Simulated assay, not measured.
Amino acid sequence: MRPYRSVLYIPAARERALEKARELPADAIIFDLEDAVAADEKDNARALLAGVLATADYGTRAKIVRINGLDTPWGREDAAAFRGAKVDAILIPKVGSPADVDAVAALIPDVPLWAMMETPAGILNAAAIAAHPRLAGMVMGTNDLAKELGTRFRPDREPMVASLGLCLLAARAFGRIAIDGVYNAFKDDDGLRAECRQGRDMGFDGKTVIHPAQIPVANEEFAPSEAEIELARRQIEAFDAAQRAGQGVAVVDGKIVENLHAVTARQILSRASAIAERAI
């Protein structure tokens, strides 16, 4: 079980940022060739990133490249540059339907694909997109989605909850990784923490972040707490003891523990173990 608590966007045109990312405690890095790179820097950024990823060691961090859309002048060259590259995924921007995944899959047959979910069409087609056999993950593009929907920012993200929920349901139905969108106020730790908790409680695997300062908060909030780990251990012990006694349920802290609770508890411990073993 690979952790994706914090997924950091890095502009592919910034050589110093690419170097610094090798030392940051993010679980994954999105090397961005799309929004974070100006049009006149696209070609240089592509060449720089291809060279860096061919030689640099990013340790256990997942390496994800966000290419430009195939409807742009740069998308096909991006796809050609990273076909067969030593990366963990190619992130496709503005996926609106399975056909968008098909188009990239035909150009990049040998690297897992992720989808940016950031358009109304993409949200409405989330289940069909998640079902694509080449898809491995989904990332919420909440800034673009808010623009398309015409929503206003609210700390509770009420205007965004339906879209978040639809994509999360789709991801879980087909066993895909699901990453929450960014929090723009990178100096507001309290706001970030609240949004991380909301995404975590909904069921997202982690959060995309736009600044290194946001990584510790995301890592903390998307990791099981010590209390959760301790409770999971007690639930497993109690359930296993009940099973040995020929009983189908146990009781821990006055609450019923059935098989489904034991499965969830084992998942919590597995996640905690994966995080603990991740060396940076």
Score class of each variant (00 low, 15 high):
Ala265Gly: 10
Gln235Leu: 10
Trp114Gln: 00
Ala274His: 08
Arg234Cys: 09
Gly181Ile: 08
Ile64Trp: 00
Ala126His: 05
Ala38Ser: 09
Val139Met: 15
Arg176Tyr: 00
Asn143Met: 06
Val111His: 00
Ala241Phe: 06
Val217Leu: 07
Phe186Ile: 15
Leu269Cys: 02
Pro212Ser: 03
Ala232Asp: 10
Ile123Tyr: 08
Gln198Met: 15
Gly150Asn: 05
Arg46His: 03
Glu41Ser: 04
Ser225Phe: 14
Ile30Glu: 03
Arg172His: 11
Ala17His: 00
Ala130Met: 10
Asn44Cys: 05
Leu149Pro: 03
Glu237Met: 12
Phe186Tyr: 15
Val252Ser: 05
Gly96Cys: 08
Gln247Gly: 08
Ala126Glu: 07
Phe222Cys: 14
Val111Gln: 01
Ala185His: 09
Ala80Gln: 12
Phe186Glu: 09
Gly84Ala: 02
Ala21Asp: 01
Ala62Asn: 02
Leu231Gly: 04
Asp32Gln: 02
Arg157Asn: 15
Ala241Met: 14
Ile67Ala: 10
Gly137Ile: 00
Ile67Glu: 04
Ala194Trp: 06
Gly141Met: 08
Asp71Trp: 11
Ile179Phe: 07
Asp40Lys: 10
Leu113Trp: 02
Leu135Met: 03
Arg197Phe: 10
Ile236Leu: 14
Leu169Cys: 09
Gln198Asn: 11
Glu228Cys: 07
Gly137Lys: 00
Ile268Ala: 07
Val217Tyr: 07
Gly122Ile: 05
Ala162Pro: 04
Cys196Lys: 13
Leu18Tyr: 03
Lys187Tyr: 11
Pro109Gly: 04
Cys196Ile: 13
Leu18Ile: 03
Phe153Gln: 13
Met202Trp: 12
Leu33Met: 12
Val182Met: 06
Ser225Gln: 12
Arg176Ala: 00
Ile92Ala: 03
Lys207Tyr: 13
Pro155Trp: 11
Asp40Ala: 01
Ala89His: 01
Ala103Phe: 11
Ile275Leu: 15
Val101Glu: 09
Ile92Met: 02
Ile236Pro: 07
Val7Thr: 12
Leu24Lys: 02
Leu231Asp: 10
Ala136Arg: 00
Ile215Ser: 13
Arg83Cys: 11
Asp35His: 04
Ser97Asn: 09
Glu118Ile: 11
Cys167Gly: 07
Phe186Arg: 11
Leu135Gly: 01
Ile64His: 01
Lys207Arg: 15
Asn44Glu: 09
Ala56Arg: 12
Ile280Gln: 14
Phe31Gly: 00
Glu237Pro: 08
Pro133Glu: 12
Leu24Gly: 00
Leu145Gln: 04
Lys94Gly: 01
Phe239Ser: 02
Pro133Gln: 04
Arg16Gly: 01
Met1Gln: 10
Ala115Met: 06
Asn125Thr: 12
Ala81Arg: 14
Leu192Ser: 08
Ala171Phe: 08
Thr264Glu: 14
Ala276Asn: 06
Ala170Asp: 15
Pro216Glu: 10
Ala50Cys: 04
Gly254Ile: 06
Val182Glu: 06
Ile30Leu: 05
Gln235Arg: 11
Glu220Val: 07
Val161Trp: 06
Lys207Asn: 11
Pro98Glu: 07
Leu169Val: 11
Arg200Glu: 12
Asn68Arg: 12
Glu230Thr: 15
Thr60Ser: 12
Glu158Arg: 14
Glu195Ile: 13
Asp78Thr: 08
Leu145Cys: 14
Ala242Lys: 09
Val52Asp: 01
Gly75Asp: 10
Arg83Lys: 14
Ile29Phe: 14
Ala56Lys: 04
Ala80Leu: 10
Asp40Thr: 09
Ala131Asn: 08
Glu77Gly: 05
Gly141Val: 06
Asp201Trp: 10
Leu107Ile: 14
Ile129Arg: 10
